[in-house]
Amino acid sequence: MGLLDANISNRNVLVTSVDNVMNWARLSSLWPMGFGLACCAIEMMATNASNYDLERFGIFPRSSPRQSDLMIVAGTVTMKMAEKVVTLYEQMPEPRYVLSMGSCSNCGGPYWNHGYHVLKGVDRVIPVDVYVPGCPPRPEALIGGLMKIQELVRMEGLGISRQDALKKLAEKSVDAQQVIDQVRRATA
């Protein structure tokens, strides 16, 4: 927070909107539910651990869906697990967010054709806010997805629906290829 670093005088009084303060608080303490379904969970655990240290973003896993506001679907969702995922999602208090991590939970991944037992995308049973591609995604990619969730939280406000927030977020989107090209040119 740049503001806190600045030399604030006048008895530390800051003027801002309720939306800003609430969103800052919410996006700085995203609590994901601590559960993993397959190899993506290993990357998620690595992201939580000291090297990538998600806690510096205020993100740390909770053991109960009732204390969580973010669900990271990390791994292959089987048909057997799908209904349990829905139950867990329903137990989370609103506002809640879902991050689909990895190819399996995005669209079935390597099981898309012959995996009779795999749900072909967790978005068939619960609404997904951010998809992180990869098989499994590296911790950097997961952190990127989490920061997208934070951006989404920042777009929300009193009287603004999730759909509107997503629309606002989409308007702000950047073409990834352009950024990649830019970095490549700079490093070439």
Partner: peptide, 14 residues
């Protein structure tokens, strides 16, 4: 084997 179309109302094939 042919996979079933739905399981508990959830679509199974891709």
């Amino acid at each position: 084997y042919q996979v079933q179309e739905t399981y508990h109302g959830i679509k199974v094939p891709y």
